[in-house]
Design a protein around this nucleic acid. Structure first.
Ligand code: FES
Ligand code: FES
Lengths: 134, 134
DNA sequence: TAATACTCTACTAATTTGGTAGGATAATAA
DNA sequence: TTATTATCCTACCAAATTAGTAGAGTATTA
């Protein structure tokens, strides 16, 4: 399951995609329109900026904009930025790989099975973009 | 991510599949062979029995056996029994559906996107069986 | 009737999730 | 230059979930 945080992130990005290209949008506007708790959204958008998904501008007339065209931002990259791994096991993760202590990867049936699952899931998630979230 | 519990469940089932068909296998043997904490495995196997994935027999010569041929037990059904939903959003779950309060499903882009993700993931997970975990 | 092996409920500690609080910092404009 | 606006950042907190453990109960068999 996606965390609530990731769901908020995707909703916020969808909202920004709907206004792309255009001037900065303030957190308060996104929070209100998408019914996301303001302070929570602050931390979320900050994380998305640090993941190079958003650009920010401070002060009057400031706010957030997408770092690039919505079509160039995959849903997969957003989930990774907020929730971390997409795979169902650490030992099959592409971006968050972690070896299994008690298990030899080359002979592990679980590893094989969940590699296939990962490939199917990620194929879809990499193709879907923030443009699809408008 | 799968919980540790689900991972243990799949490993235990893989072990039982390797001995299928055959007499009952005791929890202690599975725990030792697969390096799973005994008392934890007890609760896991109990859940699998309640989900009609395992059969149990008490007393001397007792233990657990698969309820049916390993090829007839999908990995998806095991995950559902232990971790619950496979989908990334409650509102796209087939077996654990939960409506989104703040969101109209018929016009929701998140819903559309994660329905596609669910379909791709589940297609693989329904095809994989405990036979593949030997 | 004693030994074996699953059954069941309840409990606990550690981690993660879903936030909130409050001040710091940067940009703009009067 | 100072007030205002809006993001930045760290730290904190409560509730939920996860990963087990404890211990007594029940059924089966020899
Ligand atoms: S489960 Fe990760 S290598 Fe076996
Ligand atoms: S996110 Fe569930 S219906 Fe929109």
């Amino acid at each position: 399951m996606l965390s609530n945080k990731a769901k908020y992130a995707l909703r916020a990005l969808g909202y920004l995609a709907g206004k792309y290209p255009g001037g900065p949008v303030q957190i308060a506007e996104i929070a209100e329109q998408q019914k996301i708790p303001l302070k929570f959204l602050e931390t979320i958008l900050l994380e998305l900026r640090k993941a190079d998904i958003l650009l920010s501008k401070k002060g009057k007339g400031g706010g957030y904009t997408l770092e690039r065209d919505p079509k160039q931002i995959s849903v997969a990259s957003v989930i990774r930025a907020i929730d971390g791994p997409i795979s169902m096991l650490p030992c099959v993760s592409l971006y968050f790989y972690k070896k299994c202590d008690d298990c030899d990867e080359t002979h592990c049936s679980l590893n094989r099975v969940f590699t296939d699952v990962r490939d199917a899931t990620i194929k879809v998630l990499e193709k879907k973009t923030v443009r699809d979230l408008i």
